[in-house]
């Protein structure tokens, strides 16, 4: 209980800092970078619930981000709903996709599941390309407010929103890590047959994990089109999401909730720096090389070095 109080206090401090920064810092690029890094904290944490705790590799982070993003786009265009409802819609859409994926494919193990997630990404991208209402291949420009009464600009408010989502996501992952649910997932990762034999309802737990992970990714995707005020299939389905959301937990360490956070903050910041100073190709090259390097040489990530 004490540790939860400390965690909540830490989360509040992060949020307060984000709000203060949004109110008074001047550099707009910093906010974009912060938005991206915070989004990756959510995505890496979400990926880790299914991948790190449960041992199921999801190559389809892009599909979930895009599902959240396009759910927000469609509803904004349809009914001009307020922001919290858009985020809620993105979360729900991600959860539906997650449970559908879980039901369809979690009977499959290992590589089959991973390839199925890749398949879902391409299929959904084809759906978006053929869906004219949300812009099809050309993408869509969003009509959204530019001002915010408290933070100055709308984008700054979105950064604070994303910081809030990051705190909530990490809190969820922290809870999963110590709960019976998390222990069931770890048992599934270590030996699915043994877990089943011990009475863990493996299929139900896996579908629940996929749903939770998908909901968090969908939530992280919803503010993306609003921030960019434009979205097309390459921005939403970018392979970079799939690789980064996997590389970050692997770099930080998959066994503990802090691992994905460390990975997302370090790699996310480095990516932003490299993209600005060198080029975005070199940025993805470094991400890929780091993923390979850590998988090969440091299977337990940075946390492994620290002896956790």
């Amino acid at each position: 209980m004490r540790s939860w109080v400390r965690f909540a206090a830490g989360g509040l401090v992060v949020l307060l800092l984000a709000a203060l920064a949004a109110r008074w810092l001047a550099n707009d690029y910093l906010f974009f970078a912060a938005f991206v890094v915070l989004q990756f904290v959510v995505l890496a944490t979400a990926w880790n619930i299914l991948g790190g705790y449960g041992g199921y590799v999801n190559f389809g982070t892009g599909a979930f981000v895009a599902t959240g993003a396009y759910a927000a786009v469609a509803l904004q265009k349809l009914a001009d709903l307020p922001l919290p409802l858009l985020v809620l819609a993105g979360t729900a859409a991600g959860a539906v996709l997650g449970s559908a994926l879980g039901l369809l494919t979690l009977r499959l193990r290992g590589i089959y599941f991973a390839i199925a997630t890749l398949a879902i990404t391409i299929i959904l991208e084809t759906v978006v390309l053929n869906w004219d209402y949300v812009g099809g291949a050309r993408g869509i420009t969003l009509d959204r407010p530019h001002e915010d009464p408290f933070f100055g600009t709308y984008n700054r408010m979105l950064v604070v929103l994303m910081a809030g989502m990051a705190v909530v996501a990490v809190g969820i992952a922290r809870w999963v890590g110590v709960s019976a649910f998390g222990r069931a997932l770890s048992a599934i990762r270590d030996s699915e047959d043994a877990a089943e034999a011990c009475g863990v309802p493996t299929l139900r737990r896996k579908v629940q994990a996929a749903t939770l992970s998908g909901a968090m990714m969908g939530a992280a995707g919803a503010p993306l089109p609003l921030y960019l005020s434009f979205v097309d299939h390459t921005a939403a389905f970018g392979l970079n999401y799939a690789v980064s959301a996997m590389a970050m937990p692997m770099i930080g360490g998959t066994g503990h909730w802090i691992g994905p956070v460390i990975g997302a903050v370090l790699l996310g910041t480095a990516q932003q720096a490299v993209t600005v100073t060198i080029s975005s190709e070199v940025n993805v090259l470094i991400t890929g090389l780091l993923l390979i390097g850590f998988v090969v040489a440091a299977p337990r990530g940075i946390l492994g070095w620290l002896g956790r």
Partner: peptide, 27 residues
Amino acid sequence: RRGTDAGLRGLAFFFGVAFVAEVILIL
């Protein structure tokens, strides 16, 4: 040879290799 979660890491490894190959071709 490492056993246990080698499958997960092997997958991540080949995914990374494919990704790096693509970026190198772009460069």
